[in-house]
Design a protein around this nucleic acid. Sequence first.
DNA 1: TCCGGGACCAACTGAACAGTTGCAATCCAA
DNA 2: TTGGATTGCAACTGTTCAGTTGGTCCCGGA
Lengths: 193, 193
Amino acid sequence: MGAMAPKVSTAATRAALLEAAREEFASYGVAGARVDRIAERAGVNKERIYGHFGSKEKLFDAVIAEALDDLTARIALPGTDPVDYVARLTDYYRTHPDLVRLLMWEALNYRGQDLLPGQEDRVGRCARKNASLAGGMGRTPSAETGRLLFTLTGLALFPSMMTQLARIMLGDAADDHDAMREQVSAFVAAALK
Amino acid sequence: MGAMAPKVSTAATRAALLEAAREEFASYGVAGARVDRIAERAGVNKERIYGHFGSKEKLFDAVIAEALDDLTARIALPGTDPVDYVARLTDYYRTHPDLVRLLMWEALNYRGQDLLPGQEDRVGRCARKNASLAGGMGRTPSAETGRLLFTLTGLALFPSMMTQLARIMLGDAADDHDAMREQVSAFVAAALK
DNA sequence: TCCGGGACCAACTGAACAGTTGCAATCCAA
DNA sequence: TTGGATTGCAACTGTTCAGTTGGTCCCGGA
């Protein structure tokens, strides 16, 4: 029983909603996002959001999941060169400000101490990164290498998270992304020497 | 003409509103915050918010300004020991999660390229920190020392911003704040050697 | 003692919003 | 071809929310 083959347009509608939702959530967050605006941007009726995703919050979760899949698909593991890893990650975040904002909204939204269900895949991904980083440095994965991975992630993410602070601290020099990336890379290289 | 001496309770009402608003905004952000809830928490009529601050957004600005004043009053300048500065800053942020969340909401809220009016004091504060850091290292303030200051700020802030990511990456080891602070300090020390 | 003005508040208002409903069009399996 | 199920939609609903209004109370000055 049941529909084996869904409508052709179903997938397209869903994808259009996800894309429109990504923009809307990145701009305004969960509380500030407007369901009507998402539907309008997607050129789709509002009710379809509830048909496909159930609620505004679940749509947000779907957007986050998709963005994270994209990130892991596009960024290689730390591997043998942590310095290069930070540089690549820095560039990726800088060129994907929507993703950065989504991560921030998410961090603010789910502030609980415990992990949400369905995040096991993220734990696994991070464990793999940790293993890759440790292996590249000729060490075994540990809390210490984990903290290093966390620190490197922070160094790459922070400039894209706090662009306003960068402008306040650096003035027009905040626009010199190359200089920032090089200086951060040099910082990491010196620290790991 | 004009009230020379405002009512005694006026200042108390205002302070109660600011404190209630700080909690509410830290929890829910500007869009998610509820004016009625702030008034209730403060034990004050909602209308007083508009009498004192004019609007929800302006109340948010007042909360931010107060929190930043508090931060600069309590944290000494980088001075001669950048490593110690990062450690102190890390502790301050970790023990003031509301401030960290406010900074994040603010960063997400004002995403414009240009500085908002009335942020000249922040620019001045950062310039002073930059001068202090550069002086402590026997150098003159420059874009390079500014970027270093920015990086150090990031290292201190990031663990308190992304506690959920820390939990995902580190598991229970995320609770070991001392280890994190020490490892970050060592990282900075090695980088600046 | 009376007056003017500011602090304060309960109740109100109009708009915005998340989510729903009832129905038409479409598709696929038999 | 037909029938059951699914996509899609316009209009609707009940609620929630930021901001307002009209009035009372209290204080300090004359």
